[in-house]
């Protein structure tokens, strides 16, 4: 029985992965006269995308259930943070009811849950939006404090980091542009906004591409191991090898 439990998910994974890889490399057919193979791959690609979305909807459901279970347990245990759990649960349930019942908005399956005047929009405008904005604004203060402590010219590497940070910081504001506007046109590449753009476009791009290629190679290696069934897969409960 355990062999079946391990093999069936592995077969599903391998077949689906191979079909998706094949569909990525085969051009989608135009019209109905295309060969059967590419047409089937295109249909599979389309269908898998739909199934993925259905699964993603269930992931929302699972997430919601998990949130309720976790916080109910915390409230039951009467831990020190139970009040926060209560706030989370009440907020979750209130928004869920408002959204599901489409209170204040156009009713029915086709009704826009976020139509102007709906309660969900009111919650969004009056609660969620200001909360997000407040939390995100705090970042500016922490960035300022962290910059003060981190950007110190203690070594060659940290000096390079410091220089880049200053150029990018100044290059991202109009005041920085005015600071070096006096530099004549033939030497315009030395102006701070041009230097800032150069840092982002050249050294940054080189570093980012190296990272992206490295990560992509790692992902390919992991995918090949999973398709071949040699990677430990928590879904099948198998040990792999």
């Amino acid at each position: 029985m355990s062999g079946v439990k391990q093999r069936v998910p592995q077969i599903i994974l391998t077949v689906v992965a191979l079909l998706l890889i094949a569909s990525a490399f085969v051009a989608r057919p135009e019209g109905g006269s295309a060969p059967l193979g590419p047409r089937l791959l295109a249909i599979a690609d389309q269908e898998f995308a739909t199934w993925f979305s259905i699964l993603a909807v269930f992931a929302f459901l699972m997430g919601g259930l998990n949130l309720v279970a976790t916080h109910l347990a915390k409230i039951r245990e009467r831990g020190p943070d139970r009040f926060y759990s209560l706030v989370t649960l009440v907020s979750f349930l209130v928004v869920l009811v408002i959204g599901t019942a489409k209170l204040g908005g156009p009713p029915g399956l086709q009704g826009d849950v976020t139509a102007p005047g709906s309660w969900l929009t009111a919650v969004f405008d009056a609660v969620l939006s200001p909360l997000h904005a407040t939390l995100y604004s705090l970042l500016a203060f922490y960035i300022a404090s962290a910059s003060y402590r981190a950007f110190r010219a203690r070594s060659l590497e940290s000096s390079l980091l410091l220089g880049s940070a200053l150029v990018v910081l100044l290059g991202r504001i109009p005041a920085g542009r005015h600071l070096t506007a006096w530099i004549p046109e033939p030497l315009a590449f030395l102006r701070v906004e041009e230097l800032s753009l150069w840092i982002l476009r050249v050294p940054n791009t080189a570093g980012q591409r190296a990272l992206m290629i490295g990560i992509a190679l790692g992902v390919i290696a992991l995918a090949v191991r999973m398709i071949a069934g040699v990677e430990k897969d928590p879904r099948s409960g198998g040990d792999g090898s």
Binding site: A140, A144, S147, Y148, L166, L170, I173
Partner: peptide, 9 residues
């Protein structure tokens, strides 16, 4: 804000 951060750096 950027100028303040530059000044502190």
């Amino acid at each position: 804000a950027h100028l303040v951060i530059v000044a502190f750096i």
